[in-house]
Write a protein that binds this DNA or RNA. Structure first.
Lengths: 155, 155
DNA sequence: TGTGAAAATCCTCACGT
DNA sequence: ACGTGAGGATTTTCACA
């Protein structure tokens, strides 16, 4: 059990912060019914514990011409740890790959890739993923629409 | 073409803001080589245009006991728009479902669900997704590890 | 943990270029 | 459209109760 011990107020704070990262401690204090100083101390503790990782601004992909979500299932040639690390570094270095999970089941990895259009994706697939030495094959699935996208972990 | 027209400085600003949403305009100004006022005007324009959606704090799922990512492919009974909307409302109202995409191919929807453990997921699946009137069947895939998770849209 | 206050920072805008 | 400058509000931060 290496999870931070949250009480009710911590949870409230996290819920608020996950919805709006830019908000004054005073406003949080009022919302959770505590003093600003108390909130400040709690937030600082949550930060140093690593519960609060960072605060980021969210950009609308469509409005910057990155409207296409593609999910790519990848199967590796071997399960050799070196090859895996190699592939994971590849993933890490490509900003189009927003998410990557090591999976159970038929496929080794699942990637969420965000690109401008199909041609854009084709480029990444042919010149990146499929040509990677550790990759055996892959299967791509295109999102027609993003129904929901949330960054808020339930607490 | 309904995408915002970004110049080089806008892109720099977005890159910075997507990495750190809490940062002063002055610091941004210095980083991009412009005046704070100019940055402020640009950011405001990006906000009103909807490019900058919101700023949020990110929480480490593991540290709050929500360490299990599950991907759930869902097939609908019919493609009746009403049933779809109904299901999408269901998705929207469940905070464990962080992402949901309408998909091309064999499955109608792909969901990313964040839960505490398998038992937790079983509950959602049996008492939520599978029992939903619009859902025909589903297939679940478990993430063994989160290799990469980024919220930054490439700009 | 809460109150209070001090100091620093930051946002915001008017003006001139 | 950009930069300078400055007012004023807001916020962080901490000492003390």
């Amino acid at each position: 059990m290496n999870s931070f011990n949250l009480d009710a107020i911590d949870r409230k704070i996290l819920r608020i912060l996950q919805d709006r990262g830019d908000i004054s401690h005073a406003a949080i204090a009022e919302a959770v019914g505590a003093s600003p100083a108390s909130c400040w101390r709690r937030i600082k503790a949550l930060e140093t514990a690593g519960v609060l990782v960072k605060t980021v601004s969210l950009v609308d992909p469509d409005l910057v011409g990155r409207g296409l979500n593609v999910f790519c299932q990848v199967r590796m040639k071997s399960h050799d740890p070196l090859a895996r690390r190699n592939f994971e570094r590849f993933v890490e270095s490509h900003e189009e790959v927003l998410e990557c999970y090591s999976m159970s089941g038929d496929w080794d990895y699942l990637l969420r890739v965000l690109v401008a259009d199909v041609a854009d994706y084709e480029r990444l697939l042919m010149r990146g993923i499929l040509t990677h030495e550790a990759v055996a094959n892959s299967s791509s699935h295109f999102a027609l629409k993003s129904v929901k996208y949330s960054t808020a972990v339930p607490v």
